[in-house]
Nucleic acid binder design. Structure first.
Lengths: 203, 203
DNA sequence: CCTCAAAACATAGCATTGTTATGTATTGTG
DNA sequence: CACAATACATAACAATGCTATGTTTTGAGG
């Protein structure tokens, strides 16, 4: 009774938008669909307009971020794992700087918050594992500490990606997180090994 | 030999742009000059175009921030002063959320970096005073610690101003900064008084 | 298998945007 | 006082996002 949408078209447009973003080409309605075979109306049937496209691009950004965080394995040292999650967060922002910028630009809405919460969940789980292992003081709220870790990661990523700080500043990530975890009760000596192992935010 | 520009017009346009930003009205060339008596060309003689206007608005944002930080007095407790600077930073972002967002949006350039450095200088001086008072471990790089403080402040301000975190999350500011300063060698017990005094990022 | 309506899709036009081209008015300077 | 450089105003321009209109496809009901 109805003609159905082709999900491949939607995915292709999002992918193309991400590529144009990485190539620093201005993304306009006509430039986006140029050469793709689809007309300008496709963007309205699949996204409802440019706002819808940007929302989908933000979702894509959070999906890529979550995929990257999912690759961090859970080792016997949960605090080191948390630091690794932070480094992976920074590495993702550095690898897709323009996409990361769009993720937190104006237009952030409820649906984006859900995607962001999913990302935050990785940190919450990490804090819970560390707490269960007795590495943090009893009474530490996992969500609270996860949000604080996120704040550090996003602050650093944002300042580097938007320009004020050079890429080298990403090296502050591990010390900042270590300071936070120490204040939550962890013995800084136990984390030293991971730092010496040379966690780098670079890919 | 030449007709001179009136600085008042330039200031008026920047002020009007800031007001429209706070009122969440879309800022377009024609809406900006509507009702001001000046024509659209004024924006080109004074700013060279919309990009120039946005650059001037960013500068205005950094100027307001610097003015707010300048009101923080230097007390006998330099570490508490640093915390107060952080709280003032957050209060400024909360009072002018849209302006703060524009300050760090795409388009950040060299001239903006100079303004940002001026802001950072308040933090560097604060760290230097604390180091001179023996509150931080010897060998602490003032610029490094200032950048780390900025990272925390901006991360929190950015996540609140763009939407992911609620305003209440600004309460994380003091604990995060305290954790950082403690890792730099300060005795957390000496800072407790300032926390108990109830530093609030709210105005 | 046929029908048909609903939705995808294409084309063209519209209002608005930032910018530039052109002309006028003003004013500081020699 | 004269003039030229510059502020300033008006209008036209290309490009943008969007909508109106028409066409084509296709999946469900008989």
């Amino acid at each position: 009774m109805v003609r159905t949408k082709d999900p491949a078209v939607r995915a292709m447009l999002i992918e193309r938008a991400a590529q144009m973003l990485a190539a620093r080409e201005p993304i306009t309605l006509r430039s986006l669909v140029a050469g793709t075979g689809v007309s300008t109306m496709a963007l309205y049937t699949y996204f409802g307009g440019m706002d819808g496209l940007w929302k989908a691009v933000r979702q894509e950004g959070f999906t890529r971020l979550a995929a990257r965080l999912a690759t961090i394995p859970a080792t016997a040292d949960p605090v080191t794992d948390l630091t690794a999650l932070g480094a992976a967060y920074l590495a993702n922002a550095l690898a897709n700087p323009d996409l990361y910028r769009v993720m937190f630009e104006a237009g952030f809405e409820l649906e984006d918050a859900a995607a962001a919460d999913e990302t935050l969940h990785y940190l919450v789980q990490g804090v819970e594992r560390a707490t269960a292992a007795g590495r943090f003081r009893a009474g530490v709220d996992p969500l609270e500490l996860a949000v604080q870790s996120w704040t550090i990661g996003h602050g650093l990523a944002s300042l580097v990606v938007t320009g004020p700080l050079p890429e080298a500043a990403l090296g502050h990530g591990v010390p900042l997180l270590t300071a936070l975890f120490t204040s939550a009760g962890d013995d800084p000596g136990r984390c030293r090994s991971s730092v010496e192992r040379g966690w780098s935010p670079a890919v």
